[in-house]
């Protein structure tokens, strides 16, 4: 039971790891789209959710999202964008490309944790 956090900021990945740990999941990380795909190649069977930043070097999040959705092995894994790209059209674009949810920065830690819980289908009663 793992969540893959993809963001070029190590600090942001650390913030996200707090929420992931609270929910009892292991964390896998990647600093850009290319690394994310490499991690998925190795470990996709354990990954229950992908958190994807947008602006990253090598391969941005939107491109990574498209590649994830094109791959038979990865496409069923839910993806949530976690990004500064908060304009409506970007949100719509990402959702249409297959992202399940969207969290724009800045966010509270509680929002982050609740939205991850929501993506994983964790609900009350």
């Amino acid at each position: 039971m793992a969540i893959l956090a993809v963001d070029d900021s190590r600090i942001m990945r650390r913030l996200i790891s707090g929420a992931i740990e609270v929910l009892g999941y292991d964390m896998l990380e990647a600093g850009n789209g290319v690394e994310a795909l490499e991690v998925l190649e190795k470990s996709y069977e354990e990954v229950d959710l992908i958190l994807l930043d947008w602006n990253m070097p090598e391969m941005d999040g939107y491109t990574a999202l498209q590649k994830i959705k094109e791959d038979e092995r990865f496409k069923e894994i839910p993806v949530m964008m976690v990004t500064t790209e908060s304009e409506r059209e970007n949100m719509v674009k990402a959702i249409q490309a297959g992202a399940k949810n969207y969290l724009s920065k800045p966010f509270t830690q509680e929002d982050l944790t609740s939205k991850i819980a929501e993506c994983l289908g964790m609900g009350f009663e």
Partner: peptide, 21 residues
């Protein structure tokens, strides 16, 4: 009204950032 927020409340588990504020 939020199911996922209640889930977290029920767990009583908070991360470093949440307990520091």
């Amino acid at each position: 009204i939020s199911s996922s927020a209640l889930f977290i409340a029920q767990s009583g588990r908070y991360d470093q950032v949440s307990v520091s504020r």
